[in-house]
Each structure stands twice: as structure tokens, then as C-alpha cells.
Design a protein around this nucleic acid. Structure first.
Length: 263
DNA sequence: ATGGTTGAATATCAA
């Protein structure tokens, strides 16, 4: 089974490219982030025509996460128990959805950006990740053998080699110690990064800012990850980043991350 | 070209 994750930065602007990607790489399941649309705006028809069913949650033009699968899609859960909210009034955002696909519980996650180190959104980001670690860890202690993968845009570069320049990111988000500690807390809850061993750095990135000619200058960040439970991680045979998807007109600012799983 | 790009409630906000 082949499972991928991709922050598409608007599914309506990118749907042709996403379908072509699924077919080109023979992908069974895709966790999608930043659909940037409401449920009633999601372009279901192209997915159905390509043989995929989709579970999506989108409340407005921001965030929005989905799972597309051609190997079944059951037991969809929106958000997770304890997920913090945002806004005025405070409410749940469309940042987490999970479903059982091909016997694996896949979660598509869009971790809050943080905006800047002293922004209230950073406290929200850390709280959100802390609650996620708590929820996922608790679930794992109840069902230690369940194959689970937490995949998506984590908005964190966990290692120095995951950014093109640590000097550039001094006092910026994505590399701060509290963010990295929040990421490690998910690992400490029993999950492991199943992609890094197959996509070694340095210079291995999944995101390049649209500005500053970041992509041609190879000035990127690795912030998209798949964190697997023990039984999921044991089945991973390969992973790769499709850097070609960042090329050309109409590209998302993120490249997809693809994970291969033994049957 | 040198403070840059993209996408969404088309007016700013978010990334």
C-alpha cells in the first residue's frame, strides 16, 4: 500500500495536479492539508472519477484537511479529543481528520503555523501539539498494536539540517526549542518518523516559500512528516519526497511525501 | 526584479 501526504494550498486551485499525482505514482491513500474550502466546495467529482472516496472537513477559506482513499474509508473522525480551538469566539478549526483505510488509521494533520514566537498563535500551536501527543499516546496505550500514522504539515523543522540556514531562521518560528520539544513529545508518546531514514538530509526539504526564489535557490524546510505507531513503522519499506511537484506553474509551496507499506 | 508570491470572503489576512 502506498500512502502520501501533501499540503496542496487550495484543492480547488490544484485538483488537476493532485489527481495527476495520484495516478502517476499509483497512490492508494492521500492525506491532504490546506484544502482552503468548505465541505460543499470540495471537488469530489474528479476524485470519484479517479476511483477515490474522500472524507473532508473544511469550515471556511482557511485550513481544511481531507483523506482520499481507493482502498476503503471507514470510521472517520473529525478533530481529536481535547483539540484546542482558536478565534473569537474560540472554536475548533479544520486541522485534523482521520479514518481507517486499508486497515490503517491515517490522520491528516495541519498543525497551526505559530506566526511569530511572541504571537498568541504560537501558544495555540504548542497547546495543539501537546494535546495531540496526549491523545495519540493515550490511544496507543489502549491499542498498542493498532497501525496508526499521523501525517501532514507539522510546521516544525525538528533538526537543524531541516532548514537551509539556521541563521536565517534565528528568532523565527518552526525551529524554536519549544516547537521542537512539542514535536518530540509526539515521538515520546510512541510514534516514530518513518520518512527520514529513507530521505536523508541535509538539503532534503518538503516546503519552499513562494517568495525570494526559494525553490530554485534550494532554500527550503523539511516540515511535512509521517509519524507511525510501532506496527505501522514496522511495515514501512520506503519513502520519498516528490520534489518535482514543486516545479512549474501552479505548484503548491509544499511537495508531497510518499510512504510505502508492506502488505 | 532587488521588500520578493500565492490563494482565499476582492480587501486583507494567512502562510
Amino acid at each position: 500500500m502506498r500512502i502520501a501526504t501533501w499540503n496542496v494550498n487550495s484543492i480547488r486551485a490544484r485538483v488537476d495536479r493532485v489527481i495527476a499525482f495520484l495516478e502517476r505514482h499509483d497512490v492508494d491513500v492521500l492525506a491532504i492539508q490546506e484544502t482552503k474550502c468548505r465541505d460543499d466546495q470540495f471537488p469530489h467529482l474528479p476524485f470519484e472519477a479517479a476511483g477515490y472516496e474522500v472524507a473532508h472537513v473544511g469550515l471556511n477559506q482557511w485550513n481544511g484537511v481531507a483523506i482520499a482513499s481507493r482502498v476503503g474509508l471507514q470510521d472517520t473522525e473529525i478533530g481529536f479529543d481535547g483539540m484546542p480551538g482558536w478565534g473569537d469566539p474560540v472554536g475548533a478549526e479544520a486541522r485534523a481528520i482521520s479514518a481507517v483505510v486499508g486497515g490503517v488509521r491515517v490522520a491528516s494533520l495541519y498543525v497551526p503555523n505559530g506566526r511569530s514566537l511572541d504571537d498568541p498563535h504560537m501558544a495555540y500551536k504548542l497547546d495543539w501539539l501537546g494535546r495531540l501527543a496526549e491523545y495519540a499516546g493515550g490511544r496507543l496505550s489502549t491499542a498498542p498494536d493498532e497501525p496508526v500514522v499521523l501525517m501532514g504539515d507539522w510546521n516544525i523543522a525538528p533538526e537543524d539540517e531541516d532548514v537551509w540556514s539556521m541563521a536565517f531562521y534565528e528568532n523565527k518560528t518552526h525551529v524554536s526549542e519549544p516547537e521542537r520539544a512539542a514535536f518530540r513529545a509526539v515521538l515520546d508518546a510512541g510514534f516514530s518518523d518513518v520518512t527520514r531514514a529513507h530521505t536523508p538530509g541535509p538539503g532534503t526539504y518538503t516546503y519552499w516559500d513562494y517568495t525570494r526564489l526559494s525553490f530554485p535557490k534550494r532554500q527550503g524546510m523539511r516540515i511535512d512528516f509521517a509519524l507511525g505507531s510501532p506496527t505501522f513503522a514496522a511495515r514501512v519499506t520506503d519513502a520519498f519526497i516528490d520534489r518535482d511537484e514543486r516545479k512549474g506553474k501552479g505548484a503548491s509551496d509544499h511537495a508531497p511525501v510518499i510512504v510505502d507499506l508492506a502488505d
